[in-house]
């Protein structure tokens, strides 16, 4: 790569008690924090109702495709990495790298809904609908709400792409705002993956 700036410089900046740099616009952080609390409340309610009937939930968990869950986790993690690299590239003034990284991130991001459909459609076909049990109700609604976030994230990344591609002086704050949103989508999936696929 041609960038002469060591990427570590950005990350190793010491944060003092009162000051620091917020990545992206602060209104986006307002949204993220609220969204995390809302999802948090949903996760806790899932755990509560799971506790009421552990066998029902464990029985439901057996029907999930573990491998799609793992692949989707890796897809989102990798996509997140490329978005982070794109933001770093944009900050270092390396627009070409940023665009390339963002393209890879978007391609991986599009893969997520595709895999979700590969996971959902055979299940729905086999009669495992949200009405099947409380587990499947939670499963479809929570992953569905997350999917809405993924699609919104892809739209936002599209706007970021346009900004990097066409703007004379790309607004780095906007690029970071899109990136931070995408990382939130990633971290919510990490929790969904643990709660629906992995825990026993």
């Amino acid at each position: 790569m041609t960038s002469t700036n060591s990427p570590a410089v950005n990350l190793a900046k010491p944060a003092s008690a009162t000051s620091g740099r917020v990545s992206g616009e602060s209104s986006m952080w307002f949204f993220i924090i609220g969204d995390l609390f809302i999802f948090g409340a949903y996760f806790v309610s899932y755990m509560y109702y799971r506790g009421q009937d552990q066998q029902l939930f464990l029985e439901g968990q057996q029907h999930l495709d573990q491998w799609i869950g793992v692949v989707n986790t890796l897809v989102l993690l990798t996509s997140s990495l490329f978005v982070a690299l794109a933001a770093e590239g944009a900050r270092n003034g390396n627009r070409k790298t940023a665009l390339r990284m963002l393209t890879i991130a978007c391609a991986l991001g599009v893969l997520f809904p595709v895999l979700k459909m590969i996971e959902w459609l055979p299940k729905l076909d086999a009669g495992l609908t949200p009405g099947e049990s409380l587990f499947f109700m939670y499963y479809y609604l929570m992953t569905g709400l997350h999917l809405v976030h993924v699609i919104l994230g892809l739209i936002i990344l599209g706007f970021v792409f346009r900004e990097l591609k066409t703007a004379k002086h790309p607004n780095i704050g906007f690029v970071e705002t899109g990136a931070v949103y995408w990382h939130m989508v990633d971290l919510l999936w990490l929790l969904l993956f643990a709660l629906f696929y992995l825990m026993r």
Partner: peptide, 11 residues
């Protein structure tokens, strides 16, 4: 931020 709060309302 009100726009974002409204988005939670929507979701």
């Amino acid at each position: 931020w009100l726009g974002y709060y409204t988005a939670w309302q929507f979701a």
